[in-house]
Nucleic acid binder design. Structure first.
Lengths: 173, 173
DNA sequence: AGGGCTTGGTTCAAGTTTGAAACAAACTTA
DNA sequence: TAAGTTTGTTTCAAACTTGAACCAAGCCCT
């Protein structure tokens, strides 16, 4: 089977998507680095903890919610712990495990910086969207995320020939 | 003025967006690392060059198209040059400048790996969207990207109080 | 109890990214 | 034309990320 290149509409959508997501992440990272002294991911980790019962979560669970690898989380939590925003505790029921707990100081940082973060997300994203578009956004990405998580990654819908060759018409960025 | 927190719809959309974009970027990065030995960004750089006249571009221009900083581009091109996929040339008209040129080998790598990349993007994104959603995607992100680039970043639409305080209702990840 | 296999997490080394500082050529203007 | 400014790019050091390798502690089975 010969590659199905992206249609012109798809190409436009893809380019817009790539550009916007890069720019948006960069802008948010800069804002949080400025105001909270940490990148977006680290902020998200604190946010995740703050919403969990007891403000604590097992590492693996936290990694899953954050959509990152355990390795990455280990380093992130190490940094946050050094800053006193998170504390690591051993898990009583499973001696292998460890749980990350948000400290009062971590909670305070979150409370202090959340408004600025929300304002940024609003200014850069939601204030530019109609309610209809917000719905679309959710629908689209909920589906995409499901496809990337749930489904057994061995055989996604249809088929995914991970490598193939033929003359490229456009490498699609 | 007290912070306008995200509405429940916006929160759902935001979470879905964050999850999907992370997972998607990771999946694409892994696929390209596997099949092309480089992360998505580097592939995009080659792709950008391949579509430019003469397959060469000034560094700054390339950085702008790729939506990355000049610094980041410098390192990326250095690596690609080390691999023989790109060549740096001095700019004749402006001795400060330098241009990155795609080598034949770089072009070959692109041709060899583009199909697999497109298949991935299709499988993970476009094959899950209706034509209508592809349109929506383009509309939404074209607008967002414009807001993040064009407009003088000093005073975006409405107002962007970059830092503010009050009790957070939800830190919005 | 004594292998094995799995699971939860960390560590290692190499690679990538960051923002600020440094450079150097080009432009401006007195 | 010398001084000062802007523009194009690289360099630096520190931070972050990656995937594979590793180490335990739990599990399963006999």
């Amino acid at each position: 089977m010969t590659t199905r290149w992206l249609t012109p509409e798809e190409q436009r959508a893809w380019r817009a998507y790539i550009a916007a997501t890069h720019l948006l992440e960069d802008a948010i990272d800069r804002q949080l680095q400025q105001d909270a002294g940490m990148p977006h991911l680290y902020y998200s980790i604190l946010a995740n903890l703050s919403e969990s019962p007891e403000r604590r979560l097992r590492m693996t669970e936290l990694a899953e919610r954050s959509k990152i690898t355990r390795s990455r989380l280990t380093y992130a939590v190490a940094r946050l712990e050094k800053d006193g925003l998170v504390r690591r505790e051993g898990c009583p029921s499973d001696k292998r495990g460890s749980v990350a707990a948000l400290t009062d100081e971590g909670m305070a940082v979150l409370e202090r910086t959340a408004p600025g973060h929300v304002d940024t997300v609003r200014a850069l994203l939601f204030d530019r969207l109609t309610p209809r578009q917000v719905e679309q956004l959710e629908e689209i990405f909920t589906g995409v995320a499901q496809g990337l998580q749930g489904e057994d990654p061995g055989e996604p819908p249809g088929d995914v020939p991970w490598l193939r060759r033929s003359a490229p018409s456009s490498p699609c960025s």
